[in-house]
Design a protein around this nucleic acid. Sequence first.
RNA 1: GCGCCCGUAGCUCAGCUGGAUAGAGCAUUUGGCUUCGAACCAAAGGGUCGGGAGUUCGAAUCUCUCCGGGCGCGCCA
Length: 644
Amino acid sequence: MHTIKSRLRARIGEILAGAYPIAPNDIDFIIPPQAKMGDLALTLPFGLAKRQKLNPRAVAQEMMSRLGTLPGVARMEVAGAGYINLFLDKDAFFAARLAAAGTTALRPAERKVIVEHTNINPNKAAHIGHLRNTCLGDTLVRCLRFQGETVEAQNYIDDTGVQVVDVVFGFLEIEKKSLADLDGIERFDFYCWDLYARTAAMLEKEPAAQARKTEILKAVEHGQGEAGAMAAYVSRRILRAHLATMKRIGAAYDVLPCESSILDLRFWDKAFERLKQEGAITLAGEGPNAGCWVMRLEDEEDKEKIIVRSSGTVTYVGKDIAYQMWKFGLLERDFYYEPFAEDEGRTIWMSTAAPNERGIHFGGGSRVYNVIDTRQSYLQKVVVQGLRALHFEAQAAKSTHFSYEMVALSPRSMKELGATIAAGDEDKAFHEVSGRKGLGVKADDLLDKLEANAYAEVAKRNPDLPEETKRRTSRDIARGALRYFMLKFTRNALIIFDFAEALSFEGETGPYLQYTAVRLNSIFRKLEEREGRTLAAVGEAGREHPPAMSTLPAQEQADAWGLLTLSSQLDDEVLRSIEALEFSHLAKYAFSLCQACNGYYHKYPVLNEEDAGLKAVRLQVLYSARDVLVRALDLMGIPVPERM
RNA sequence: GCGCCCGUAGCUCAGCUGGAUAGAGCAUUUGGCUUCGAACCAAAGGGUCGGGAGUUCGAAUCUCUCCGGGCGCGCCA
């Protein structure tokens, strides 16, 4: 649909250019609410009628007669208050769709796109909130790559931050453990989850301990002593656990830039210099911020943001401005890199301050997406203002904060977790996840639960499958269920997490989509078993001898056409999802496509159809739908098992 | 106080940048497995789109206002 829309847009623009005052952007299509109203509709007459104070219907009539015949369009009609409805040439469209199987008409727009996501503090196990971040970020990466963009997936590691320091403090001061003791701890990320909560509670109760924590923080920032070594150990080991967790949902990264490298390579000094040079920050002489370097904020006259404290240390925002500059290649510096892990043949690189001769480079994107929850909107805005203050207007315009709402816990989930509800919070509709309080659903626990439920279903339905296949299938189903669950909500929707809802495998869920794909695959597998025709052979037959749809009986033609046009909208949906950063669009689209597939093959048998003509059409319609569905699922990171 | 977000069916949510009769899933009721897989399909009931005003050919969608809920606004990260 994307292809024919672009073609029609260009052609209509050409024809009407002399007759009406229209810009190319005015020509837009909507999909009519009912199939009998056509395949595409022009709303152009409404806009023109308004400007020229004419009757929209009359404008539509005149416009339609000017348009004459359009390529690929069988007929047009004026309808409703002034729509021009287009009915496509079904056979030509069918043939074009079959020829285009497995391809996209989308084209890249950027030199290089950087997507930063996940970014979990490496001091405890990942939880459901982190899963939402990664699902959104990884889906964005997949969609951009589908569009043909060169994409770098970055996962920023704050390995010297206070959260890591808290855990180091816990080991050293509360548990009196040495670095050597840590190797013996199993499920290290879960262990630290509890320790972090205990430490946070203890530090709150005993302010006197703050001094010791500050000491540890300094040592960690300079990589000195046992604390420094322990911070490196904790952050690396937790990071490996995070990567393993995210691998379970199919997320991968190209590079892991570390806070420690930023400190060691003094990225901030360079940025500080520039900020001062450009007058973007000034030294406050008096008032409450005396002695601090501050940045004035747009919109808020009376406010200034502290970038460098009076003690000379840089704040979080300041570091983030420097880091954002690096992402755009504006810092004139880069990290060194060394391999951190291998993932299915691809190396995941980690930044280091230690020079090497590898010649590997990252960063320097022409567009940057930061996937961070909405609570950081204000700070993200300040970071972009920092770029603007340095006169990097173009980069500021291409810095996108991909914000999304948090995942909270329903009262029922709280009960299932055995969590106690704080006094005064009894009436709340939801409870915020908090790593500091150790309150939340750990990602691996949820995935384990999903897998266990999936395993029970698989074992019930396919008892004869080998054990390893059952396990693998359960993992695929768990991943599908989770990824769809995280994508089906719009990003501004607060997800109030409920186990029953998240663990459902029926209705609008990942497993429903997977089941549809499995059944479609099954039809083609049986076709090969019974008739020796492979999927590839069906595809080739469709490309070379596309069957005609126009000869079908009316009802069947309508149903086949409905499924075909729906399955032709992947490009449009991907583009729309990227532009709006709203992958619920893609999710809903894939779900609708599955509903249409299930309805279609339920109504029209393929393998047992004796009429060769009917069979050929049905086979090709399903071939096309299968092709699109499998790709849509892949974009969402949802795998398709062989059986389920 | 200022900024941002949310309010749509009993519940959980969509609603394609202002379009034609507001849609899904769950739950409820009913029907369908001897056929390419029932994690499915077919059908039914269920709505003052938080309230009010405005903009116009046309509003769930845009503007204003009020009500209810959430999140931000630190010499923390």
